[in-house]
Design a protein around this nucleic acid. Structure first.
Lengths: 90, 90
DNA sequence: GCCATATATTGACAACAATCAATATATGGC
DNA sequence: GCCATATATTGATTGTTGTCAATATATGGC
């Protein structure tokens, strides 16, 4: 993972709502309507956040009928964790 | 570390220049003038970035005469790495 | 085909961010 | 005290972001 991509990923989770969305998705796939219930934001705002998370490939979407099921892209997330882990201090 | 603090830390390193500054500081303390040479930005812009990194306590400064020596706050950084590591996927 | 529901898009707005030029402040040497 | 140097602050500008209301799109059931 390049520094540039890592910076974009950090930026993507550098918003409290989006970080919490990522945390929720670690428990498994959730549809937009479920996520929406858990935050005090409107549906368009959630849609905006999900688009940002999908754009950096941290989250993926599975469309099923009317529903959008969002889930973490584990491969990308592990890549990100490895990047962060490699920044050694002291 | 709270979600809120983690989000602020992510935001702080969610800029390519600041992420690269953090990377440079893993090699040890550096003064502002040294850092400045490594980026195509002006001195006020670097000062701005350093203030943001210091504000979230990811970087600390040691003033010595005319010079400001910046270094990573390892404790805070490790805390952040642990936070990220605990977000388990799949 | 019409309606209800789930989600996306558009447009607007206020807040914030990255950057620079200009200027201010602080320090050490003379 | 004056000068050079290192860094910070201010002010301006341009671009981006988080948010909402309103509207559009898509899907399934009747």
């Amino acid at each position: 993972m390049t520094d540039k991509e890592a910076a974009l990923l950090c930026k993507a989770i550098g918003d409290l709502h989006r970080l919490q969305i990522v945390q929720l998705l670690t428990h498994g796939e959730q549809c937009a309507c479920e996520l929406l219930e858990k935050f005090a934001i409107t549906q368009p705002t959630l849609s905006h956040h999900m688009r940002i998370l999908c754009r950096v490939k941290l989250v993926q979407v599975r469309k099923e009928g009317k529903w959008c099921h969002y889930s973490l892209n584990c491969e990308k997330f592990v890549e990100f964790k490895n990047y962060i882990e490699k920044i050694t201090c002291c």
